[in-house]
Design a binder for these strands. Sequence first.
DNA 1: AATTGTACCTGTCAGC
DNA 2: TGCTGACAGGTACAAT
Length: 273
Amino acid sequence: MPELPEVETVRRSLEPLLVGRKIIDTQIYYGGIIKKPTPEEFREEIKGRKFEKLNRRGKYLLAVLSGAKTLVVHLRMTGRLTVTEESKPLDKHTHLVFTLDNGCELRFNDVRKFGLIYLVDNNRYQEAGGLASLGPEPLEPDFTVEELSRRLESKNTKLKSFLLDQRQIAGLGNIYADEALFAAGLHPERRTGSLTQKEIEGLYQALRSVLQAGIELRGTTFRDYVDGTGAKGGFQDRLKVYGRAGQKCDCGCILLKKTVAGRTTVFCPTCQI
DNA sequence: AATTGTACCTGTCAGC
DNA sequence: TGCTGACAGGTACAAT
């Protein structure tokens, strides 16, 4: 599923293909993806604008357009955003096609129609769903051990639930939350307030290294994910726990599967305490 | 106010 | 073969 490393990979792959390009027009095949404004207004308001910059915040992709508007895209679970030559036939489940000024198209495809798209004024991100209430970026310098510690102690919940809460830390999903907990040797059901200073430092390092490795390998393609050029990621070969329930951990134990915080969670009962 | 549960979707796969 | 039901999971919103 597109989490921070996948969205960052999409951003990096799309940026050189989009910046400087102008949107000639938009074909809307399924308007339900567009949350704001109405699909008709969206098409009118975006017409003629140029891509100036591509940013990412948590799992949100932010395309800054000329005229001080930002196109906000969330891929949720199965969304794909790719640049394709306009001569290529549309894949099934393509809901939105932006015609660019160079013979290419930016296409939004989503099997399950869960993706979200907003067009908002710059700096009015509170109008774009949960974007305004995101927690810190885990790979930015302002996310420190102290910041993590403060947030852990301000809650009394299970670690898995904490890591998935976008208001606490932006960008983790089920894959990287499980991988980070494994790397830190922490049980997903440990209470946030029960961690020692050493464990907090270990979790901090685990979060950063797992996300960084995910980016370096251009994301995890477990099922649907591809980057902005349609290429698959490479981190799926490095997964230690996610999707591996019933298989052996490096320590020889069988990895367990359990629903925690409403999510399938895989962990090693001996390595994670 | 904060937490929990459910809806949103379709493809895939196990079991019959 | 073809059907049914469970499952996958991020966010918005309703319910508690």
